[in-house]
Design a protein around this nucleic acid. Structure first.
Length: 253
DNA sequence: ATGGCCAATTTTATTGGA
C-alpha cells in the first residue's frame, strides 16, 4: 500500500494540487498537515468524490490535520488525549486494515528560548506518552511534519543551522526519546545515509538551490518496518505554480 | 548586506511559519 504525508500549508491554497496528487498517485492513505481551515469550511467534496473517507481536525487560520483513506477508517482519535487544555489541532489518527495511521503536525518552536520552543518540547513529551500507549495497542504509522531535522545529514548547511530551532540537540533528543517507545524512522530503516530534504524556504530561491531540511518523517512500529518497500520525496510537487514549502513524502509498505 | 516568501486574518498591516 502507498501512504502519503504532506504539509500542504493551507487546504484552500492547495486544494487543486491535492486533487491532482490523488488522481496522479492514487495513494491509499494520506496524512495532511497545516490545513489552516475549520472543519465546517474544509473543502472536502472533491476528495470524497475520488473515493476517500475524510477525517479532519482543524482550527481557524493555524495548524489542522487530516486523515484520508480509500479503505474505511475506524476508531478515529483527535489530539493527545491527555486531558491537557490545548486548543492546537496537531494530531489525528485512525485504524485502516489493522494499522493505526496518524497525521502529526508538531510545533515549529520559533527560536530557542521562546515560549513556543518550550511548548514544542512539552508537546514532544506528551506525544511520546500518546505514542507509547498506541504502540501497546498494535501496529502504528505516524506520518507528518515533525519540525525536527534528526541529524546533520538532514540539513543542507549544518554549520549555518547549528544550534538553531529544528536542529538543536534538545529537539533531536526529544525525537530520539519518542522513537524509543518502539518507532523507527522509515527512511533511515531503508537507507541510513540518504540525503532527502522535505522542506525548502520560500525565500532566497531555497528550492532551486536545494537549501532544504528533512523535517517530515514516517515513524513506524517494528512490524511495519519489516514490510517497508520504499520511501520517496515527491519533489515535483514543490515545483510550478503555488507550491507548498513542503514536498509530500511517499511510503510504500 | 543576514533579507528576500507565502497564507490567512486581524486585510492594505499583522502574525506565524521554518
Amino acid at each position: 500500500m502507498k501512504v502519503v504525508s504532506w504539509n500542504i500549508n493551507g487546504i484552500k491554497a492547495r486544494h487543486d494540487r491535492l486533487l491532482a496528487l490523488l488522481d496522479r498517485g492514487a495513494p491509499d492513505v494520506v496524512c495532511l498537515q497545516e490545513l489552516k481551515s475549520e472543519d465546517a469550511t474544509f473543502p472536502g467534496d472533491g476528495i470524497r468524490a475520488r473515493g476517500y473517507e475524510l477525517h479532519t481536525y482543524g482550527q481557524k487560520a493555524y495548524n489542522g490535520v487530516a486523515l484520508l483513506s480509500r479503505v474505511p477508517v475506524s476508531d478515529v482519535r483527535r489530539g493527545l488525549e491527555d486531558g491537557v487544555d490545548d486548543p492546537q489541532a496537531r494530531l489525528i489518527s485512525g485504524i485502516v486494515d489493522g494499522v493505526r495511521f496518524a497525521s502529526l503536525y508538531a510545533p515549529n518552536g520559533e527560536r530557542v528560548g521562546s515560549d513556543k520552543f518550550a511548548y514544542k518540547l512539552r508537546f514532544y513529551e506528551r506525544l511520546t506518552s500518546w505514542a507509547r500507549a498506541r504502540v501497546a495497542d498494535g501496529p502504528l504509522v505516524v506520518g507528518g511534519d515533525y519540525n525536527i531535522a534528526p541529524s546533520d545529514l538532514d540539513v543542507h548547511d549544518p554549520f549555518a543551522w547549528a544550534g538553531a530551532a529544528l536542529c538543536t540537540d534538545e529537539e533531536r533528543a526529544a525525537f530520539t526519546t519518542l522513537a524509543k517507545v518502539g518507532l523507527h524512522d522509515a527512511l533511515r530503516a531503508l537507507e541510513p545515509s540518504r540525503v532527502a530534504f522535505t522542506w525548502w524556504d520560500y525565500r532566497m530561491l531555497g528550492f532551486q538551490k536545494n537549501r532544504g531540511l528533512r523535517i517530515d518523517h514516517f515513524l513506524v512500529t517494528a512490524d511495519v518496518r519489516a514490510r517497508l518497500v520504499s520511501f520517496e520525496v515527491d519533489r515535483a510537487e514543490r515545483k510550478g505554480q503555488q507550491p507548498s514549502d513542503h514536498a509530500p513524502i511517499v511510503l510504500t509498505i
